[in-house]
Computed example of a mutant assay.
Amino acid sequence: MSTPTQDLSAAGVSIWLDDLSRQRITTGNLQELIDSHDVVGVTTNPSIFQAAISAGIGYEEAIAAQASAGASTDDTIFALTTTDVRDACDIFRPIYDATAGVDGRVSIEVSPDLAHDTAATIAEAKKLFATVDRANVLIKIPATQAGLPAITEVIAAGISVNVTLIFSLERYAEVIDAYLAGLERAHGGDFDLSSIHSVASFFVSRVDTEVDKRLTAIGTDEALALKSKAGLANARLAYELFEQKFGEKRAQDLVALGANVQRPLWASTGVKDPALPDTLYVTELVAPGTVNTMPEKTLAATRDHGVITGDTITGNYADAHAVFDDLAAIGVDLVDVTQLLEDEGVEKFIASWHDLQGTVTAALTGAPESQR
């Protein structure tokens, strides 16, 4: 008997864990999830590192060493996070090798303070890539207006990228174009296109949270019947767009030169509404060539009782379009929803980053005098 996570993998979905900490690495927990839950990658973000480092477990000696060296708060954060990602990359290297670079990936994000600064994002992305110094690292760049040209520039430099905080189909189309433009420049610069990989992280549950709030405020039977449908519809239409864009001549010409398609990645897949099935954003978003990055709770639920029935995306395009039409008809402005979510997403990561700075500052100044 296969397990649900094995079934999910067999259906073409790469399972990545949306969490990382030094404790996971040193205790063997990460390797255990690889072995037992079919995990083939990891994503991180400022909130994840804030939670891990604030817990303190496993970081005491490293922070004391940074204090002793007189390191600044930001330099300490950079050292701690890049070390964790490097060590995780080493754990995943066999999977990276076995999948020709498709999986075995670990993501690390540029500082969210730089989300609206193209040049600074490019500089930090290159610095992160050089510091981690592992072929299987993915540099996360947010899909803000300032992030789009940074994506092109970083891909053009031969660096693999995880584009994050995508909420709208319109922005997703721009992300794909930015990736293709980067590949075209990389080809002109004599990079091996087959070595450059990318995923586009489309956020799911947050869309339902915001849309459902608006549907509840409208309060009609028609509105309430649409609750918890927008997130899946949005993601399914993103996959339709992925198929369309990478089927066009521009993308196919690059693929013929050895380039990889930019895989859709389903993020924010933890269910926020307790009335919904806890595996909803996993079992209903199955299609070949996708990634689902899950918090551990969702991963455990999927492994325990997820029911994988095959492709649940490509046969549902018409229904997804109908959901969008129905939402528009009752006055839900999806353009406004997705822009709000992008703005809030950046703000939340900035807040987490600043919390992390405060935690590390306190730890540095609180290190014993003999270690400073």
Rank of each mutant, 00 (worst) to 15 (best):
F191S: 05
S194D: 15
S195Q: 14
S195A: 15
V199W: 03
S201I: 10
S201V: 03
F203I: 07
V204M: 03
S205D: 03
R206E: 04
D208K: 02
T209S: 12
T209G: 04
E210G: 00
E210K: 07
K213E: 13
L215G: 00
T216G: 07
G219H: 01
G219A: 02
D221P: 00
E222H: 01
A223L: 08
L224K: 08
A225W: 01
A225Y: 04
L226D: 01
K227H: 11
K227M: 13
K227C: 09
S228Y: 05
K229Q: 15
L232F: 08
L232C: 05
N234K: 03
N234V: 02
N234W: 13
N234M: 09
A235K: 05
R236P: 06
R236W: 11
L237A: 12
A238I: 04
Y239G: 04
E240K: 11
L241H: 13
F242G: 00
F242P: 00
E243P: 09
Q244G: 13
Q244D: 11
Q244H: 12
K245I: 10
K245D: 06
K245Y: 08
G247W: 00
G247R: 11
R250A: 02
Q252A: 05
D253N: 06
L254N: 03
V255S: 13
A256D: 14
L257C: 08
L257I: 06
G258D: 12
G258P: 07
N260R: 15
N260L: 07
V261C: 12
R263Q: 13
R263H: 08
R263W: 06
P264I: 13
L265R: 09
L265G: 02
A267C: 09
G270S: 15
K272S: 12
K272Q: 11
P274I: 01
A275C: 05
L276T: 08
L276C: 02
P277Y: 06
D278I: 11
T279H: 01
Y281Q: 01
Y281N: 07
Y281I: 00
V282E: 02
E284Q: 13
P288K: 12
V291Y: 08
N292D: 14
N292Q: 12
N292I: 08
N292F: 01
N292C: 07
M294F: 13
M294V: 09
M294H: 05
P295R: 08
E296Q: 13
E296R: 03
T298S: 08
T298Y: 06
T298G: 13
L299F: 03
L299T: 00
L299Q: 04
H305S: 09
H305F: 13
G306R: 05
G306L: 02
G306Y: 03
G306Q: 10
V307L: 10
I308Q: 00
I308T: 10
I308P: 01
T309Q: 14
G310I: 08
G310V: 07
D311F: 06
T312H: 00
T312D: 07
T314W: 03
N316A: 15
N316D: 15
N316T: 09
Y317A: 13
Y317P: 07
